[in-house]
Design a protein around this nucleic acid. Sequence first.
DNA 1: TTGTATGCGTTATCAC
DNA 2: GTGATAACGCATACAA
Lengths: 337, 337
Amino acid sequence: MATTIKDIARIAGVSPSTVSRILSNKKTLSSGYAPETISKINQIAKDLNYRKNRSAIELVTKTSQVLGIILPASPTNFAQEIIAGIQKVASLHDIDVIIAYAGEDSELLQMQALKTISERSVRGILLLGITLSATNAQFLRASDIPYIFLSVAQPEPDLPFIASNDFDIGYQATNYLIMHGHREIAFVGADIPSCVGQLRLDGYRQALKDHQIAYRADYVIPGNWLYEDGIQAMNMLEKLPHLTAVVAGSDLVAAGVINRARQLHHHIPSDLSIIGIDGTALCDIIYPQLTSIQQSFYEMGVKGTEQLIRQANITSSYTPICTKKGGSVATRNKQNE
Amino acid sequence: MATTIKDIARIAGVSPSTVSRILSNKKTLSSGYAPETISKINQIAKDLNYRKNRSAIELVTKTSQVLGIILPASPTNFAQEIIAGIQKVASLHDIDVIIAYAGEDSELLQMQALKTISERSVRGILLLGITLSATNAQFLRASDIPYIFLSVAQPEPDLPFIASNDFDIGYQATNYLIMHGHREIAFVGADIPSCVGQLRLDGYRQALKDHQIAYRADYVIPGNWLYEDGIQAMNMLEKLPHLTAVVAGSDLVAAGVINRARQLHHHIPSDLSIIGIDGTALCDIIYPQLTSIQQSFYEMGVKGTEQLIRQANITSSYTPICTKKGGSVATRNKQNE
DNA sequence: TTGTATGCGTTATCAC
DNA sequence: GTGATAACGCATACAA
């Protein structure tokens, strides 16, 4: 039987409310107590190994110091960066974090995760890297809990998000290669049907168009942002003789392309230039080091959490992107060929 | 104002008890109800957007469907694999997961995390990759909640764990290199003062001893399991001309050693053989692909969670390790030199 | 400065 | 089959 404030009150010879006020430690309430009462209570609490009962507190106060995070079933490698940002801010405000996993595709698992989170009286919900089905989005809205999506921009205005501008990412990656003299550029490994994939592809196409380069459907090889997709993509790219550069959907995809290219005896970047997307720690670790469009993942976590805690009106925003230079892109002299 | 059981009861014209029994969905209790009552209640609950109040449930039932995870402040790259295992089992049992972060070194942050978790009536606590201070371990014991440590073996018998045998890891890594003809072997990047580091170093030394190879203190370069430690280590290793092989404390360290070696124009593995520890996805991604002692991280998560849920007596155990072959170790012909 | 009384939303025990 | 009622542990309005 765990000790309660009643136990402490009985032993100390005071009322439970006294114990409650002292232990809850609110300056305004407990300031008036005699120092000896305070220290006595604290001592007894310690001796009896007293722990607060959060359920009881949350029940009576109807608020909690908990933030809910919903993650995709297979967290991407940058999810950790976002979570680090969330955790940083949360711990600064003495706020706990609970995590539930939702399948990306399975509507049922999504709902499960939403229920899990919304049944606990959380102060807010952070949804990482997922897009909800219409039904589930409706469920979220009806939950009456503040929420914000991270890393995936949402089309509907009442689903606030903090993310990169994925069109810009696609554009900037492609443009970077064009500026280095490339005109035969593939776009591989992205999950094209997804919002993110669609936007990045749009950016890619726009960059081509702005430089009078024809779009070729066979230069677009879809995937799921994975290392293996990079491997597969490279197998197909090999059959495209004029190709000189690749926009990879993620750093992982880029790593796959690079490694497979090496197996096929293509030299990076002289035979083939690669640019990644994400700018994760992986860029430095692979060889050659990867040039990549870097996203501000940590910042997404920080800003999202701050908004939720501040309880102000939640608004969507984009976090900055920048080009992180590695050694995977070569300058190409157009005149030479 | 969120809807409660009472609201539903009032509208349906039944008592709160009835609603509670039907909504809690226990076969034995609600089986006797008229189908029309059941469907009516469910319909109203849906219409009113009713959500259970977990705080109230946990308060009255004194049990919860929550598992607590305590993570080090900077989660290692394999933490995700362990968590995936935990999550898998937890979701199978309809159990939620809450996460708190503890600093590895800061006793205060550790305590904070322990409090956070133990104040919620969790069914069990999983401690990933951390070692508690004596005071904090005592606090954990006193919490009256089942717990188990994952991935770091604990010296005290009343702190159950599931981990790899780190002595064996050190031994096996070193032995693998010896079997490939190496005798001048460095041991780099491990956090030597830690339990894990100490055990692996012991294994390294024992392997050397078993093959009549003298231990050299300057062949041991400590670190913190990080990529940067690998870089630093390689800078120092360069000054050791006879060296032919390296045991890296982690795959990340190995990646650092390999990349720095390349910059210094040493060829891997012909000039220098490297073996990593962990066997993470990184092994395939870096070049050359890394030979590594692979740990069973996912299995740690699965087994630990099962034990906690089963509520049986928690016992320590070791998960298997195996050698994952890459291209970073060359066979050396002793006669040649 | 401290005590009393009440209620948070739910389940469980008993009664009908 | 269904309804009262008590209780879980705590915070707080009100009283003293």
